[in-house]
Nucleic acid binder design. Structure first.
Lengths: 215, 215
DNA sequence: AGATGCTTGTTACGTTTTTCACAAAAAAGA
DNA sequence: TCTTTTTTGTGAAAAACGTAACAAGCATCT
């Protein structure tokens, strides 16, 4: 087992592995080798082994990995054995869609609050989730034990919102606003930039002589 | 100027540069050096120069880049000088939010059609966009000149939808379904996986001794 | 128990990506 | 005109990442 810095590329793959392992579980497999995993899901077996080895020796030589055990390890590593409570700032269409989004309401994630500055929306329910005033953010975060925040406001407000979020002590932020944000080093900011993805498609259409690699 | 294969990391950065340059333009700057760009937007100046140099010699030594000219070049490279017409498959909350999303209705992108299999939704308008039957996909794609498709259906239907899309001759696809899709090499598939992003935040919270790098 | 087969964990290697460093080129000032 | 200043474009070094290869470990069979 290595004790180096784990790259984000590695942890992203762990999510993928977890998904694959869950699929294997519903098929009823008891064990799986890195080779079988790789074949089935178009991955590289050496990479799977290397990624997993960063966190311990989960496999058994000559056997492979015990699927259920591997699932548990991956969940633990990814922090999915704990509840996460999510707040979404921006109760527009995107915020509403995200509040409703399957992934944001899976077993270990729950959308606990929406925030907006529009007085018309404050106090209403969107799905099952109440919309609060952004000015009450810090208070609600404490009351509702929120630890993950999604920014779904227009680009020009994103930096200001991020500062509110940061001051409330939140350490994990997902940003949908298509703008680069400045943030302290102790906060994890994950940008989901749909414009970049769209423009990447546009580039491909404008330059079709490109070979397709894994997105 | 190099004539090598351009990596996706490079083209993604071009989108970022374009955004930065647009911001400079509204500030009224005429020229900008790679160093100033880098300082202001937390980038690396050598990387900016190298990325741009892949596509020509846009800069002037001793001066920098002419901002307006650079903007035009970037737009051209990214194919943003042409209209793109977008179809979204899946008229659930996510599809609806995307149809309404600013970025998808910017100058050069227009959401031209939504698709769903739910008879209740077919024929209705969502925002300004009509919802069509997925079975009519190929027909509407031709009629509406659609060249970009967004898949916003539940994971278990995504692969099937992708095949319909592929058969209709579409070459650029953005996928929101959290599942790995198989696709021909001549199609550009861009996955936007919110679960991976969320789980990456969860990992960070479970392992706070991590140093934050650029997401 | 010993030999055989399978699969991991890890090292070594190759490739890609980023960063550094500087010659070449343009502009400005003497 | 010549020197100084600025900033590009790019080759070379460094870092990060991915793939291949294999010794070490476990299980099974004889």
């Amino acid at each position: 087992m290595k004790v180096e810095k784990i790259s984000e590329l590695t942890t992203n793959r762990l999510s993928v592995y977890l998904r694959c392992v869950n699929e294997l579980l519903s098929d009823g497999s008891k064990t799986v080798s890195s080779e079988k995993l790789a074949k089935r899901f178009h991955l590289n077996s050496a990479q799977i082994r290397k990624d997993l080895a960063c966190f311990g020796e989960f496999g058994v030589r000559g056997v492979g990995y015990y699927v259920e055990e591997l699932r548990d390890h991956l969940q633990k590593i990814l922090g999915l054995d704990k509840e996460h409570r999510v707040a979404i700032i921006g109760a527009g269409r995107l915020g509403a869609a995200l509040a409703d989004y399957y992934g944001f309401n899976q077993t270990n994630f729950e959308v606990a609050a929406l925030f907006d500055t529009d007085k018309q929306k404050i106090g209403t329910l969107l799905g099952n989730v109440e919309v609060f005033a952004t000015s009450d953010f810090a208070k609600i975060v404490k009351r509702e034990n929120i630890d993950v925040v999604v920014i779904a406001v227009p680009a020009q407000f994103a930096q200001g919102v991020l500062e509110v979020v940061s001051k409330a002590g939140i350490k994990a932020v997902m940003n949908f606003a298509p703008t680069p944000l400045k943030v302290d080093d102790d906060i994890k900011l994950k940008n989901v930039d749909l414009m970049i993805s769209l423009e990447s498609l546009s580039y491909f259409l404008a330059t079709p002589d490109t070979i397709n690699d894994r997105s």
